[in-house]
Design a protein around this nucleic acid. Structure first.
Length: 166
DNA sequence: ATAAAGGCCACCC
DNA sequence: GGGTGGCCTTTAT
């Protein structure tokens, strides 16, 4: 991570229809969102990602945000942290309309680096704001789902849910 | 500094 | 179908 880390963040664990989610946020802006398989490790990644940030737990606000994101399905601001290249890729992802998918090479074109396909894939895989930065909408050009940090089954479910909740 | 590894894709059998 | 090589960035040595 190269951009300036936040001085302090609130964070918490909540449940949604896709399982447990961990969120770190400040001022209604989400800095981190992850699906959580092992509760015991829920906060390890946040700590690793923001080693010098003051973290304070706020389960109430976390539940509120989870509700906004996964139940009300309303837009919410994100503050991604990454290298300029990663930010460019993640920004491009946010322009993918809900309920549609694109290929990795389309994103590469979008950011003006048509040959950086593999680099794009890597940047997408290292996205720290799951769902809000819709890395699940990027699939393989041959029609396959390609990969997903939490398994292809969840990727499929997210896409399905989106097409049914436009 | 250098090497190796990617959530890929186009191209060849 | 399956292998292979190359694109560019990040991460590990």
């Amino acid at each position: 991570m190269k951009s300036n880390p936040p001085l302090e963040l609130s964070y918490g664990l909540a449940t949604c229809q896709f399982g447990n989610v961990v969120i770190a946020f400040a001022d209604n802006c989400v800095h981190y969102l992850s699906f959580c398989i092992i509760i015991a490790n829920a906060y390890d990644e946040i700590r690793a990602l923001f080693p010098s940030t003051k973290l304070s737990m706020d389960e109430t606000k976390t539940k509120l945000l989870t509700d906004i994101i996964f139940s009300k399905n309303e837009p919410i601001a994100v503050c991604p942290h990454g290298t300029p290249f990663q930010i460019a890729v993640w920004t491009a992802l946010q322009n993918i309309p809900k309920g549609t998918t694109v290929s990795y090479s389309q994103i590469a074109h979008e950011i003006g680096k048509p040959n950086a396909v593999r680099a794009v894939a890597k940047a997408i895989g290292s996205n720290n704001i799951a769902f809000l930065i819709p890395c699940h909408r990027v699939i393989s050009k041959n029609g396959g789902l390609a990969g997903f940090k939490w398994g292809l089954e969840l990727k499929k479910q997210l896409l399905l849910w989106e097409t049914n909740n436009l």
